[in-house]
Simulated assay, not measured.
Amino acid sequence: MLKEIRPAIVMLLLLSAITGLVYPYAVTGVARVLFPHQAEGSLIERDGKVVGSALIGQNFTGDQYFHGRPSATTDADPNDATKQVPVPYKADASTGSNYGPTSKALIDRVKGDVETLKAGSDAPVPVDLVTTSASGLDPDITPAGALFQVERVAKARNLPADKVKALVETHIEGRAGGVLGEAHVNVLELNLALDAMK
């Protein structure tokens, strides 16, 4: 019987070593050589400190900053573990709200967000400013979403709106390879550039 079990045990150990150690380390090593920035999490540094990742949104709330998409990520309520509380852009809790288009909670939240945004503008509210992404971590908004916020940000910072609009336009990234995805603006990178404006 040992004669039949030994090859199975050897194959289990060999394949575990190959697929659990050799392959992951090889792929990680190749990624670090060919794509070092991406392999390290696309981290963004300012003054030697990591301020975020280009891949994960952040919760900007002040009028002086551009805001990203709403985030549906949650965590356990510290006061009652049986309940969930919103914790926007919580990277280890990536999730959508799972509300369907007929959900009253979703409809009420979106209507409330639209009313809040319309208070500062007569322009139509871009849909990405009131809807969450599937992950709840989307770091990008559409160019329309960024341009919609120009007046508010310019007013809060006492800057000319055309100067802020020009900054947004320089941060619009096109489709990957000219065909994949849509044009977008990374909110963290835009806000960092805004902070650096003189």
Rank of each mutant, 00 (worst) to 15 (best):
Q84E: 15
T73F: 08
P70Q: 11
T61R: 11
R69G: 03
N59Y: 05
S53K: 00
G68Q: 04
L43S: 05
P78W: 08
A81P: 13
K49V: 12
T82K: 07
I44M: 03
S42Y: 09
A39M: 11
Y65A: 08
D63L: 01
A72F: 03
K83M: 10
T82P: 10
D77F: 04
Y89H: 06
S42R: 07
Y89K: 01
N79V: 11
T73V: 09
N79W: 12
L55H: 09
R32H: 15
I44C: 03
K49N: 12
A54S: 14
Q38I: 05
V50Y: 00
S94H: 00
G52V: 02
A31F: 05
Y65I: 08
I56L: 10
E40D: 13
D80L: 00
V33W: 07
G52P: 10
E45A: 14
V51F: 05
T82E: 09
E40P: 12
D47S: 09
Y65E: 02
F66I: 13
G62R: 14
K83A: 15
T73K: 05
T74G: 09
N59Q: 03
K90F: 14
G57R: 08
V51H: 08
G52H: 02
I44L: 10
F60G: 12
T73G: 03
R69V: 00
T82L: 04
